[in-house]
């Protein structure tokens, strides 16, 4: 089952402690080129993550909007998300990989990752819509807006920051967990950790880990900026008005925790 993939030419270390070896591995130009080099692995890593997120968004956003807007199926969505959260992704991934007919195909791993990414997006979407001030929604309805207009013109803009918070934590989890797919003989940056551990090349292990960590931190920072940028202009103004009652305070409670929530991976 475990396919031994071709490895990079081993870096010749001069240092003995893991830190200097890690640094030497990272600064070795041979590790930055070719089909096994860091740039290629990075593209693979991002590719798997993007595919996972696309599938997850296609499932979680419509479902979350529906439940949030209608309030139907609220209990089952929360229960489902809670159950999916407890699933160990490594286990699901190995199981899917074994059951799948072709041992090297990508989709089993992607589906396992989708199970990981759906709960944060789904619960954030649902919670974002459900937390929109009912007074606003009623006002929109009494102005004659259709349900579709209410959903996309009032509820989504008001809940967008919280929704993006869920997306952000899903991105983080997926980027982290894609590192694990190397274990089932796929690519991505996790290869360096898995391959390095197999041959006790701790410079490679550490170097790979640093690249993955840097990727996660950079992407998370980028998404934090996006999250700030897309806040509806109307809501930005509302915040500067003093003595703004509950309506203005609610989003801030959620925003405070939105960046740092959900399951770690």
């Amino acid at each position: 089952m475990i396919v031994v993939t071709a490895a990079l030419p081993a870096t010749k270390y001069t240092g003995t402690d893991p830190f200097s070896q890690g640094w030497e591995w990272l600064s070795d130009p041979l590790n930055w080129q070719g089909p096994l080099g860091i740039p290629t692995r990075l593209v693979e890593h991002l590719g798997y993550s993007a595919l996972t997120l696309l599938v997850s968004l296609a499932i979680a956003i419509p479902l979350g909007l529906y439940v949030g807007h209608t309030g139907r199926g609220r209990g089952s969505v929360i229960a489902l998300a809670g159950m999916l959260r407890a699933l160990p992704t490594l286990g699901v991934m190995t199981l899917f990989a074994l059951i799948a007919t072709s041992s090297l195909s990508l989709m089993p791993a992607i589906w396992a990752l989708v199970l990981l990414a759906v709960p944060p997006i789904l619960t954030a979407t649902y919670a974002a819509i459900a937390a929109v001030d009912r007074g606003l929604v009623d006002a929109a309805r009494s102005m004659g807006m259709t349900e579709r207009q209410i959903l996309f013109g009032v509820e989504v803009p008001n809940g967008l920051t919280v929704m993006l918070g869920g997306f952000r934590s899903a991105v983080l989890q997926v980027i982290s967990t894609v590192a694990v797919v190397a274990f089932i003989s796929l690519g991505g940056l996790g290869r360096y950790i898995i391959d390095g551990l197999a041959v006790q090349d701790y410079g490679q292990v550490l170097g790979g880990a640093v690249v993955i960590a840097a990727l996660a931190i950079a992407l998370d920072g980028l998404l934090a900026l996006v999250q700030r940028a897309v806040l509806s202009p109307g809501l930005k103004e509302a915040k500067t008005v003093p003595d703004q009652p509950v309506a203005a305070q609610e989003p801030t409670i959620s925003q405070a925790t939105a960046g740092l929530t959900g399951e770690k991976s």
Partner: peptide, 8 residues
């Protein structure tokens, strides 16, 4: 918190 678990 952002550092992936396998890396940490």
């Amino acid at each position: 918190y952002t550092i992936p678990s396998l890396a940490l």
